[in-house]
Simulated scan of single mutants.
Amino acid sequence: MMDRIVAELDFHKAALALREQRQAVLASNIANADTPHYKARDLDFAATLERVTADAGLAGPGRVTLQLTSARHIPGQAQRPVGVDDPLFRIPFQPSLDGNTVEMDVERVEFADNTLRSQTELQVLSQRLKTLLGAIQS
């Protein structure tokens, strides 16, 4: 039972850490909006979270992990997504003449979306902890 609780909390911890890292990348893009030849970057959050949770042996909420019960079973294979340390370059809709690919409207929307999702993740985690605390106290 305790392993399931720890795995659940570790998943939320990994998700929040990735949200924090993405926020830093987006903030860097906004800070360098006027820097010539600066290339806007972003993280592929879903693919990175999948890789981090798979490497840690965690399953997200509602996900099922496969376990081989026989040596004759065929293991599942998937392409390895981009790593946490490999932010992707963003392709601009309208590149500027100085080579800068930061588009402030896109960056603001992505920054606000990431902030909202971080707050939602914190609220979900808070509710899970309250539920666990209520179950323990009963």
Score class of each variant (00 low, 15 high):
residue 50 E to S: 14
residue 34 D to F: 07
residue 64 V to Y: 07
residue 120 T to A: 13
residue 53 T to G: 02
residue 33 A to N: 14
residue 102 V to D: 01
residue 6 V to C: 05
residue 20 E to M: 11
residue 80 R to L: 11
residue 64 V to S: 15
residue 116 L to F: 13
residue 105 D to T: 08
residue 42 D to H: 11
residue 18 L to R: 06
residue 70 S to F: 03
residue 54 A to C: 01
residue 65 T to R: 13
residue 72 R to F: 02
residue 58 L to P: 05
residue 5 I to G: 07
residue 121 E to H: 08
residue 45 F to G: 10
residue 112 A to C: 01
residue 54 A to G: 07
residue 137 Q to L: 11
residue 128 R to I: 10
residue 124 V to A: 09
residue 28 S to P: 08
residue 109 V to H: 04
residue 35 T to I: 09
residue 10 D to H: 11
residue 91 I to G: 00
residue 131 T to F: 09
residue 32 N to F: 09
residue 122 L to A: 10
residue 75 P to M: 01
residue 60 G to T: 06
residue 1 M to P: 14
residue 99 G to Y: 01
residue 89 F to G: 01
residue 15 A to M: 11
residue 94 Q to C: 00
residue 6 V to W: 10
residue 71 A to Q: 06
residue 99 G to M: 02
residue 4 R to G: 15
residue 132 L to D: 03
residue 10 D to G: 06
residue 14 A to Q: 13
residue 96 S to L: 06
residue 11 F to Q: 06
residue 40 A to Y: 04
residue 39 K to S: 09
residue 109 V to N: 02
residue 21 Q to C: 02
residue 27 A to S: 15
residue 44 D to T: 08
residue 59 A to C: 12
residue 138 S to L: 07
residue 37 H to M: 14
residue 52 V to G: 03
residue 126 S to L: 01
residue 108 R to E: 04
residue 134 G to C: 00
residue 36 P to G: 08
residue 49 L to E: 10
residue 87 P to R: 03
residue 81 P to S: 06
residue 34 D to N: 15
residue 98 D to M: 02
residue 80 R to F: 01
residue 71 A to E: 08
residue 7 A to H: 13
residue 71 A to L: 05
residue 138 S to Q: 14
residue 14 A to L: 12
residue 106 V to A: 06
residue 135 A to I: 06
residue 68 L to K: 07
residue 47 A to I: 02
residue 134 G to H: 09
residue 26 L to H: 08
residue 29 N to D: 12
residue 97 L to Y: 00
residue 46 A to C: 00
residue 81 P to F: 03
residue 62 G to M: 07
residue 120 T to S: 10
